[in-house]
Amino acid sequence: MGETTIGPRTRIEGSVTGRDVLVVEGEIRGTVTMEAPIRIEREGRLEAEVQGPEVAIGGTVQGHVIGLKKVEILPGAKMIGDVRTPRILISDGAVFRGRVDMDVGEG
């Protein structure tokens, strides 16, 4: 399992899929579907449908997020959209607007 990094001065329009860990410091518009953890750094911006086993949001996300195991919304994050996951952590200092659906089968 490798790593994919979207740098702070990069913008992707389209979809990103794969089995690498994904670290987003830049911007993605579209869909993100990974089979490995996804981390959106503080300066990262996603306008996308996001799915991964674990999704950690430290930046700005607008769209639906599915964390098959876990979603973390970290301090300083801005999350607008619905979250579907069996486990969710929302940190103090995070902004979240949307619904939470924790009715997902297995963890």
Partner: peptide, 24 residues
């Protein structure tokens, strides 16, 4: 800073950057 597309990652769409893009 740079963008690195890992060996098991597929991007479908356009990628633009003001930094290096390395594609594995």
């Amino acid at each position: 800073s740079r963008t690195e597309i890992g060996p098991e990652t597929l991007v479908t769409g356009d990628v633009r950057a003001d930094e290096d893009i390395v594609v594995f």
